[in-house]
Design a protein around this nucleic acid. Structure first.
Lengths: 157, 157
DNA sequence: AGGCTAGGTCTGATTGACAGACTCAGCAAC
DNA sequence: GTTGCTGAGTCTGTCAATCAGACCTAGCCT
């Protein structure tokens, strides 16, 4: 059976575009740091082990693409520096990170369990991603979802 | 203010581990194809434009890591071949893909809209990721979530 | 003046991406 | 039974990215 997807172009696929930004080896790890509140070059470098040059590149790329912004700050007794903070576009990546965390926790954690839990501020219970349709129904299995061409779909050349 | 994250090691971070698998340039794009029902080497190659060698590498890496499996099949009038299918571990990546799709649709789509919509089989409404805690509360803002060390957390050396 | 520190550059070796040609197994038509 | 086709690769050479390690620089402090 020939998959229907073959008739459609992937040139403007938004997953592909997202991966042009996020698909390089360290980008998501850097974002994990920023979401954890680590905003400074050297803290990131020490924690992640990313080579300086690569970290420089990733950070400027993320700034250029609008995911992070450089914010000046000044610690008393030090010269002005800048730190990296999430833009709105960057904050919107939160579900992606939580989804990755959930997958990693399920399949890649050490026997003693996950090193990090994200919990709801109000009740303390663990937070996970869920799939839900616009009508409010929960979607559990991938089989309950049908892909279909959206408004921007293009037939293949 | 010093971020609390600095006290904890990232060596067993499951996001980091997930990105060891998913963090190479084409891996997620390949998975998008498989989730779209494209399972054969050449179809993937033509659609994605990934160089053959890279596609070979990514596919075998994904098989080795347990995300995909190779399945033999035979079209009438052809010799036996094999195709790539998602394992259970691979199927569990579905929320990650949907989260990426949602982010890409919001921030990277062309003006005419997203090329792909995922809809609920039962009601046809669009499917999105949502964050929810174990008590069933919806979580909307990243600020409503507090990270805390999990059972596998390790202090930093 | 000299030292410290955060946030970088510079350099050279190794690895990875990529394009294009070549291979190989099995089926099919001649 | 040779020729050709097709899917799924390998081989080769080029060019870009990653990495480790040394070096640099602006402002503060002594």
């Amino acid at each position: 059976m020939r998959p229907a997807a073959l008739d459609w172009s992937v040139e403007n696929c938004t997953i592909g575009r997202a991966m042009e930004i996020l698909g390089e080896r360290w980008t998501v790890v850097v974002l994990r740091e920023v979401f954890s509140g680590v905003r400074r070059f050297d803290d990131m470098r020490v924690r992640t082990g990313v080579p300086r040059q690569v970290l420089t590149n990733r950070l400027s790329m993320l700034v250029e693409r609008g995911v992070l912004r450089r914010e000046p700050y000044r610690e008393p007794g030090s010269r002005p520096r800048h730190e990296y903070r999430l833009t709105e576009m960057g904050l919107d990546l939160w579900p992606v990170l939580v989804a990755l965390l959930g997958w990693g926790d399920r399949h890649l954690a050490d026997p003693e369990g996950a090193p990090l839990a994200v919990t709801h501020r109000d009740c303390g219970a663990e937070v996970r991603v869920a799939l839900r349709c616009a009508e409010g129904h929960d979607v559990t299995a991938p089989r309950d979802v049908v892909p279909r061409p959206g408004p921007g779909a293009r037939r293949r050349a």
